[in-house]
Amino acid sequence: MNKILAISVNTFKESIRDKTLLSLSILGFLLIAASKIFVPISIGQAHKIIKDFGLGMVELFSLFTVVLIGTRILYQEIERKTIYSIMSKPVRDWEFVFGKFLGLYYLIIFIQFILFIIFILFTRFYLGGVDWYLLNALYFFLFEFLLLNALALFLSCFTTPITAGILTLMMFFIGQLTHYLKDLVVVMKLPELSPIVNFLYFILPNFSVFNVKASVVYHIPISINSYFLAFSYSVLYSTILLILSSIFYSLKEYQ
């Protein structure tokens, strides 16, 4: 456990210095602040539009972080040859993979907290009060990006960072729509496709379980089952992906 913690803390410390992250954070801050431009054009809906836009920005910048930094995190170690002095020490492949995964996850938590604080302060300043109900979205974001982080790491085990980045983006957007797959078979009246669609439905990550933005913005109560589903689905799926990542990673050689 000490080894995983050491690798994860080091990964976090290294990633936080990444110039890409700094650019993303500044852009994130500016875009959250830019939501103010919607106030004059939103007839009586300013509160909702600003909240919706702000939550969207937090999600978008978390996504960029995973795609731009997360998919490079394993590759960089090999490319810069820092891996030699780590893997020649008594470190197992899975300990290294879990350590890198956690390090990146600390970074995502850090970014989401920072962006959320900016967002909350912004709503306090422009909307005249803090909407604490928004924090529910943070809970779902944390589990959504736990899963996306594991997915990015898994894909980067056997592809280049660019390919892994594109695939991660694709999986994220497809994952928002997987719940429509089953409806598609019914609407299109194609029962013969049902086994394939069912297979895809179960194998592809379903990110819609984390989408509570509308409920949060419109103050619609979120059931306890949704909290539990988001937690259990994310942890279980991520664990499977991390186990697979460790297996793929153990096949790697450091030439």
Binding site: N10, K13, E14, R17, R80, K81, T82, Y84, S85, S88
Partner: peptide, 11 residues
């Protein structure tokens, strides 16, 4: 183990 032309975490 000391690798050839070693590189370490610069931060």
């Amino acid at each position: 183990f000391l690798p050839e032309n070693p590189t370490f975490y610069r931060h």
